[in-house]
Design a protein around this nucleic acid. Structure first.
Length: 457
DNA sequence: ATCGGCTCGCGCAA
DNA sequence: TGCGCGAAGCCGAT
């Protein structure tokens, strides 16, 4: 079922006479459990037209984050095969955002797309909606509950948001029927559009300079992209670790996490699909996992959607900005600059291990992310600088960087979605964390040893 | 080991 | 306007 609240006509233009329906697949490059894809299939069948799908690569991203680009490309390679099996031609285009897409859109009766919540994703869709001659219809599929339905405003905390979103699961946590289009588009031409072949893309990322990229991050990272990989990892998580999840999710040495965040970030798996699989197990641990997947994840989306300053210090709540500013001049026991944080050379072996885990694997353990962010706040000249450092490192090295969860996660370290605590130097009333806390939860020494071994292998 | 206090502002009842 | 509630941790008292 595709709830009408997921669907938004972005331009209110009349249908055009076209050769096909185009699904501009951007935030959700997957076939399984994709409301936007299913909407496009239905519209194509309804109009008796074939369906073509396209993905627009942004060149600027390429140089900045090679392992990320590779992960995405692996996903696209698999996706291309799956789409072809369904009789859908898949066109990959590059070049400045817009131009090639508009050319493809020239021959379309309508264009369907998925929804993103970050500034550039919104702007991009607005611009394309404006410039296309046919309608652009957006279908929201990377959330269980559409963002504006979950709440009409920026939420204060998980507590205020939880009631609202859970009350809407009845309607939105519903299976989506998977249909193939009736007509094939495999032998259609894409007009004047300059296409990238998958082979070219793979060569671009694997040909020159394998091993390490500019940032010192291994290439490839120990993850392979694509919806099949995502589903395999999910199945293994359910089989081996879901039951232990509530007890051990804060223990990086037990390794019980689902590791879905990179796949969710790139849209290679659907949160609805994950939630259904988890619920099917009837495991007593389902509730704890779904709290993270639904309440926390969609709270992050609520944050970036409603807060225009989601990536700056100024987006924090007033009490947090005030208390941090009050303590801006406090003496810091240690201070480091960006490059020192980046190369993991602080005095703290736990912090360094967390930073190295992120660089070496593309995914820092969730519990360490809190400690890591708190310490950047503690050891930077100013809270504003700390905020920039944490966000830049997160975006550069985490495979799930530049995700709503990343922005909300960093903001949380600085008080967002949290409460005030006993006032202390540097932090003010922001929640404090220290190394003793790590050792209360797990054997932090073993964690350090394991990460060091990773670096030498 | 376990427990209460720390502290804020939302959201609802009056 | 007032009050109950919740919140991914620390710290010190028991």
């Amino acid at each position: 079922m595709i709830q009408e609240e997921r669907i938004k006509d972005l331009s209110q233009k009349p249908l055009k006479k076209g050769r096909y329906v185009l699904y501009w697949m951007q935030a959700a490059p997957r076939v399984t459990c994709n409301h936007a894809y299913q909407y496009a299939v239905r519209m194509a069948d309804h109009l008796s037209l074939p369906l073509i799908a396209c993905f627009n690569l942004i060149p600027g991203y390429l140089e900045a984050a090679r392992p990320h680009y590779r992960f995405m490309t692996e996903g696209l390679l698999a996706l291309s095969k799956t789409l072809n099996d369904q009789g859908v031609r898949f066109v990959i285009i590059t070049g400045s955002p817009g131009a090639a897409l508009l050319a493809l859109g020239d021959d379309a009766a309508l264009v369907v797309t998925d929804r993103g919540y970050l500034r550039f994703q919104k702007r991009w869709r607005e611009q394309v909606a404006h410039e296309l001659e046919c309608p652009l219809v957006q279908v929201e599929t990377d959330v269980i509950v559409p963002v504006t339905i979950a709440s009409p405003k920026e939420e204060w905390s998980a507590a205020t948001f939880r009631k609202k979103i859970t009350s809407r699961l009845d309607r939105f946590l519903m299976p989506l029927e998977q249909k193939k289009p009736a007509r094939s588009s495999l032998d259609m031409d894409a007009g004047s559009v300059k296409e990238e072949t998958i082979e070219t893309l793979v060569n671009k990322v694997s040909g020159d300079n394998p091993g390490k990229n500019r940032s010192g991050q291994p290439d490839p990272l120990p993850w392979s992209g694509g919806e099949n990989s995502a589903q395999d990892i999910l199945n293994r998580f359910i089989r081996e670790n879901l039951d232990r999840y509530p007890t051990y999710r804060n223990d990086p040495e037990t390794g019980v996490l689902s590791c879905m965040s990179p796949y969710l970030h790139f849209g290679q798996i659907s949160p609805l699909f994950i939630a259904q699989k988890i619920l099917e197990t009837k495991s007593p641990s389902a509730g704890t996992y779904l709290e993270e997947l639904i309440v926390r994840r969609e709270l992050s989306i609520n944050f970036v959607h409603y807060n225009p300053f989601y990536d700056e210090f100024s987006g924090l709540p007033d009490w947090a900005k005030k208390t941090l500013s009050d303590h801006s001049g406090d003496q810091r026991e240690y201070t480091y600059r960006f490059s020192e944080f980046e190369s993991a050379v602080t005095h703290d072996p736990y912090w360094n291990a967390a930073q190295r885990e992120m660089v070496l694997t593309g995914k820092m353990h969730g519990y360490m992310r809190m400690y890591w962010g708190k310490k950047i706040l503690e050891w930077s000249e100013t809270p504003e600088e700390a905020y920039r450092t944490a966000l830049a490192l997160n975006n550069r090295y985490e495979l799930d960087g530049r995700d709503p969860n990343g922005y909300a996660g960093i903001a949380w370290c600085f008080g967002k979605h949290d409460r005030a605590w006993q006032e202390r130097p540097v932090f003010g009333k922001i929640r404090y964390m220290n190394a003793a806390g790590l050792n209360r939860k797990f054997d932090a020494g073993r964690y350090v040893a394991r990460i060091e071994a990773l670096g030498h292998s």
